[in-house]
Write a protein that binds this DNA or RNA. Structure first.
Length: 213
DNA sequence: TTGGCGATGCTG
DNA sequence: AGCATCGCCAAT
């Protein structure tokens, strides 16, 4: 009974990520990011907001070619690209598409399954802990030491596919995936490569530039 | 409720 | 100099 609804979480393989970032980014909404800390404790969060960065995109770090910072986004799908910004934040990206084609998805927000150990939080407080790319990295303790690592099961970071229940709810339009323009950019502001889960309080609240007109 | 700005340091 | 950010504080 209920067998079809309790199937084990399926790990996302690099082959699944071997597509253009604007195809992968919406598909990652509803998937789960799993972080294992050095002490073995795991933290899990539903991906609720993503942005795509792809060749020819003036907002992409790789727009002007390979550099010491961005070389990882030219690697095979399934690598992690972490960069440091504004002197105090890290941003976590998933490398997609084929080897040699710079392509990445910025993971902007997670809905955490549980509060970090020792913290007692309301659901609302919990939803704000990883609501934004910098906050996400802070709570998951992701920094440049994770750059160029591979996403695979039992590594420090890996991905799991949408659960059947989540997919069924999406199909039944219990929730929706909204597409908009990206956030915090001075170039490529017209490209609608941001996706987020509707009615989710774990999505970052900031509005894209284009919605200000 | 919204908007402007400072903190902070790496990158090209 | 500019930046794929965030939280504070002032103005509304």
């Amino acid at each position: 009974m209920g067998e079809s609804l309790t199937t084990k979480a399926e790990v996302i393989e690099s082959e699944w990520l071997g597509r253009p970032a604007p195809d992968v980014a919406p598909d990652l909404i509803g998937c789960t990011l799993v972080r294992t800390f050095p002490d073995g404790i795991q933290m899990r969060g539903l991906i609720v907001e993503t942005e795509a960065y792809a060749p020819g995109d003036p907002a992409f770090h790789a727009y002007r070619g390979r550099s010491d910072r961005n070389w990882v986004v030219f690697e095979a799908p399934g690598h992690v690209y972490v960069y440091f910004i504004y002197g105090m934040y890290h941003c976590f990206n998933i490398v997609t598409d084929v080897l040699g084609t710079p392509s990445a998805v910025l993971v902007r927000a997670l809905q955490l399954e549980a509060a970090p150990h020792g913290l007692t939080l309301s659901a609302k407080q919990l939803d704000r802990l990883a609501a934004g790319p910098g906050k996400l990295c802070r709570v998951l303790q992701i920094d440049r030491s994770h750059n160029a690592q591979r996403l695979e099961q039992n590594a420090t970071l890996w991905l799991e596919h949408r659960s059947q229940v989540w997919q069924q709810n999406l199909d039944a339009q219990q929730h929706k995936i909204i597409q908009t323009t990206r956030i915090g950019l001075t170039k490529g502001m017209d490209i609608p490569w941001r996706w987020y889960l509707s009615n989710c309080s774990a999505v970052s609240k900031k509005l894209p530039q284009s919605s200000l007109a």
